[in-house]
Design a protein around this nucleic acid. Structure first.
Ligand SMILES: NC(=O)c1ccc[n+]([C@@H]2O[C@H](COP(=O)([O-])OP(=O)(O)OC[C@H]3O[C@@H](n4cnc5c(N)ncnc54)[C@H](O)[C@@H]3O)[C@@H](O)[C@H]2O)c1
Ligand SMILES: NC(=O)c1ccc[n+]([C@@H]2O[C@H](COP(=O)([O-])OP(=O)(O)OC[C@H]3O[C@@H](n4cnc5c(N)ncnc54)[C@H](O)[C@@H]3O)[C@@H](O)[C@H]2O)c1
Lengths: 250, 250
DNA sequence: CGCGATTTGTGCACGCCTTCACAAGCGCCT
DNA sequence: AGGCGCTTGTGAAGGCGTGCACAAATCGCG
């Protein structure tokens, strides 16, 4: 998604059956909403009815002003002097993220990583359901993983339509990833999560997000490198009070 | 890492044995360097000696101006009218990222995900080496995974020092992650990659990066939600010429 | 030797994001 | 009923990152 722009609906937002969703939430805000949501679920389970921006910000690991500004973008769902109603806010964020409708996910590539992902229960608990598994390896087709059969990639087009698959997860080697992406796009999938370390080329109406282990490690390596070169210098060693952290996030 | 500031060395950079590393590379640049590096490796294997900013930018999926600005931060390693020497640039970026020295990594939590990570060859090929595996489950301790024995988490402190572990990867359930992080920090580990969906609290001299599947999916879900609400509107359906994409990066 | 083609490195302007600081609003207590 | 303390929502400022557009530099060729 990039070029796509659309006229914003100026007036009210949030009709029950969503004529228009959210005109222009900042990307940075969107990337943080899931974190707020997780924190809210934790707080809810802990028995909290309301939470202040300060409290929620701490639980989500962000600045409280940022949190308030983020939430203000979805409307006024807090009460001055009190805070936010936990249940209400959860509903709101889930609505904005489109989690009220369970989205069908398919997983392509059932090697090491694919197996782990297929068995991950963190999907279902957050509004996603893996409805199909695909691989190109004939010897894997037919195998059952966590109650789901592995199908051949050639069936993807048909199954994607039948199952209304919205999101495709790629866990193949990088050399096969572009081809898989093309198949997904042809099948009408408009969101892709890519674990293969390579750049994918897709139409502009398709969203791609990438997760790359090696990149994360290399970024950490850089900081290690810098820290190491610091210890050799006069400044050295500030004991460090427990503090905030950075997220990888979007 | 956050507060830590240090006087920058104004003059030249890059002494052979690094008295001072890189004072202030923009975080955004650092996050892209690994991507450039991967693209360069591909180009090198394809037989290219030099590459233009335009060519490398395309291979890495970014704007060429951005690429040039990023590289200019590490010094002038290009030749006007020609481009960048592939081998030289690889060396430079690897130096900056601190990849010339192989970093020892340990992995904590050998469930579904941990198993996949332990068997991932993408670590070694990029300058990282998994030197130890830890779990709290007695029944897992002693098991051999890809030639490495699983040890008990209680041994982490000792082993971390012996093996000079710089980076710790957490793949335990979220409830155990903070405790594991504390153990890692106590053992002197200053970089953590966290797969558990929770916020970690660590001293400010420790870097934490987080990878959260559910967040990525929820961000995609939001865009699906928005796209769906768009199709119901006049604008509709731009067929989309193959184009650029967004990265998750930081 | 000079010229044109090519490509880097960067000054600049713009827009997004973050953070501070505070007025407006709400509930509770007296 | 009124005042007080607490918390939200937001205006404004500053910083960071991006991308354009161009001057400076280099190579190759005539
Ligand atoms: N294993 C990890 O921990 C890990 C971590 C980060 C990233 N990754 C990346 O994830 C991807 C998968 O890693 P892995 O370790 O599971 O690899 P793997 O080799 O174990 O599995 C790859 C799977 O993809 C299948 N495949 C190959 N071509 C295909 C095609 N055209 N269509 C459908 N399926 C196809 C193979 O049959 C195989 O089952 C790789 O790109 C890897 O770099 C892996
Ligand atoms: N499986 C996936 O595909 C996937 C994807 C994304 C994120 N995650 C996250 O990664 C983490 C691990 O997922 P999983 O599916 O492998 O879970 P899992 O339950 O299969 O494995 C967890 C492992 O951690 C070990 N463990 C528990 N407490 C420990 C402690 N205090 N010290 C050391 N080890 C401890 C357990 O013995 C077990 O082996 C979870 O937080 C999960 O949310 C998993």
């Amino acid at each position: 998604m990039s070029q796509q722009r659309h006229g914003s609906t100026p007036g009210h937002v949030r009709g029950d059956d969503a004529v228009q969703a959210f005109p222009d939430l900042p990307e940075a805000t969107i990337a943080r909403l899931p974190e707020y949501l997780r924190a809210l679920h934790n707080l809810g389970e802990a028995g909290a009815d309301t939470v202040s921006s300060e409290g929620l910000a701490a639980a989500a690991g962000v600045n409280s002003a940022k949190l308030r500004k983020d939430l203000s973008h979805l409307g006024s769902y807090g009460t001055r002097g009190v805070g936010y109603d936990v249940t209400l806010l959860i509903e709101q964020i889930e609505y904005v993220l489109g989690l009220d409708q369970r989205r069908a996910v398919c997983l392509v590539g059932l090697g090491n990583l694919g197996h782990a992902l297929a068995g991950y229960d963190g999907f279902a608990s957050r509004g996603f359901k893996i409805v199909a598994l695909f691989d190109a390896d004939e010897s894997k087709v037919g195998e059952h993983i966590h109650g789901l059969a592995v199908r051949h990639i050639a069936d993807l087009g048909r199954v994607a339509v039948e199952e209304k698959i919205a999101i495709g997860v790629i866990a193949t080697p990088p050399g096969a990833a572009q081809a898989v992406a093309d198949v997904l796009v042809d099948a009408g999938v408009t969101s892709i999560l890519n674990f293969a370390p390579c750049v994918l080329s897709v139409p502009s109406n398709v969203d791609v997000r990438k997760v790359d282990l090696a990149i994360e490690l290399q970024i950490l390596s850089f900081h290690e490198h810098r820290k190491a070169s610091l210890t050799a210098l006069p400044g050295g060693r500030s004991a460090a009070t427990a503090g905030n952290q950075e997220a990888v996030g979007s």
